[in-house]
């Protein structure tokens, strides 16, 4: 088990290095950051000086090595636009994104799985068909449109919920800002987390439904029926457990994309998270922020993947032997 985790950690480091290389190659094409820092009438000598002070006149390999050297010490550099350490900027905004992602994942799992099970078991029922039709909307509507529609309905027309921002936040444990502890913070979370989680929810619902229908036809379920087990045990002990094995993978990867694609939702709701910061960084060619954001997202994906693999082994005994060896 330990060997497995260590091996996966090594692979993860490799993945992250590759991400840095790719990111740097890409950033050469987004524009010249120096132009964003200096004004139009800055003398050429000063421009060259700024370029030199940022280390941008060095060859790319040197820049990459220097960047990696700092990154392993958790130093992601100084933002060009804010003149502040990137670590501080991201740490300040991470709670907003992570709380939003957490709520969205909870919604998508806690609503998606039961809906999927329900639609599989009552396949021809009225509500099952209704859920199926609604899920089609969830899968096919783009996120920003859902967000705008929700804002129009609940914020503009009904006036129940705020249309932007995090509401009142409370600082806990030194620097973590949370919206979970105030009424306005919770109210502000509702619309964005539904917007962000809806697609994942419908995806999980449809996945659970089709997996469960498949499992209910399996031989071991037929044998469980022939043994006279209760319907409850067959559906929720045997069939559900088999159903969840493949669902775990998808749900895990979806959690990663929830964080990554929070960019759009954060923009629609002016949510002060990392995604919004990233977008601003792209507009201003703020390479340190972009690079750090990409690193964080890929680190998240890599660790989620590893957790999923371990969970897999936890649920499916057949994989435990594979991992042990």
């Amino acid at each position: 088990m330990l060997a497995f985790i260590l091996r996966r950690l090594m692979q993860s480091v490799l993945v992250l290095v590759v991400v840095v290389l790719l990111a740097f190659t890409m950033f050469r094409f987004v524009g010249d950051p120096v132009n964003q820092i200096v004004s139009l009438d800055t003398p050429a000598e000063q421009v060259a000086e700024v370029r030199k002070s940022l280390g941008l006149d060095d060859p790319v390999p040197v820049q990459i090595m220097r960047y990696l050297y700092h990154v392993v010490q958790f130093d992601f550099g100084i933002s060009y636009q804010f003149r502040q350490p990137v670590v501080d900027l991201l740490a300040e905004r991470a709670p907003a994104t992570l709380e939003l992602a957490l709520m969205s994942s909870l919604i998508s799992l806690l609503v998606g799985i039961p809906m999927g099970v329900y639609t599989a078991l009552r396949r021809d029922g009225f509500f099952a068909r209704l859920f199926q039709s609604i899920s089609l909307i969830g899968v096919s509507l783009p996120t920003f449109l859902i967000g705008i529609l929700l804002i129009y309905l609940f914020a503009v027309t009904l006036g129940w919920l705020p249309s932007f921002g995090r509401g009142q936040v409370v600082t806990v444990y030194g620097r973590w800002t949370t919206g979970f502890l105030t009424v306005s913070g919770l109210k502000a979370l509702i619309l964005p987390s539904i917007t962000l989680g809806l697609y994942q929810m419908t995806l999980i619902m449809r996945l659970v439904r089709s997996e469960m229908l498949e499992v209910l036809r399996a031989d071991h379920i037929k044998f469980a029926r022939a043994r006279g087990l209760t319907t409850h045990s067959i559906h929720f002990r045997h069939a559900l457990k088999s159903t969840l094995v493949p669902v775990i993978t998808i749900a895990g990867l979806q959690l990663g994309s929830i964080i990554a694609f929070a960019v759009i939702t954060e923009t629609v709701f002016q949510w002060p998270g990392m995604g919004a910061l990233f977008l601003k960084a792209v507009q201003n060619v703020d390479i340190p922020i972009m690079a750090a954001y990409l690193m964080i997202i890929s680190a998240l994906f890599v660790s989620i993947n590893m957790i999923v693999d371990l969970l897999y082994a936890f649920v499916d005994p057949r994989l435990r032997t594979t991992i042990k060896n």
């Binding site: 022939a226 043994r227 649920v315 005994p317």
Partner: peptide, 29 residues
């Protein structure tokens, strides 16, 4: 009805299917 029949299956009538590789639930001891 289903519930009365359930008490007969397993209790009064045992069943053995063709493929032992797929008859058992792989996730339970």
């Amino acid at each position: 009805d289903f519930e009365s029949m359930r008490h007969i299956r397993g209790k009064k009538i045992g069943t053995i299917f063709q493929d032992p590789l797929t008859s058992l639930d792989p996730l339970f001891r």
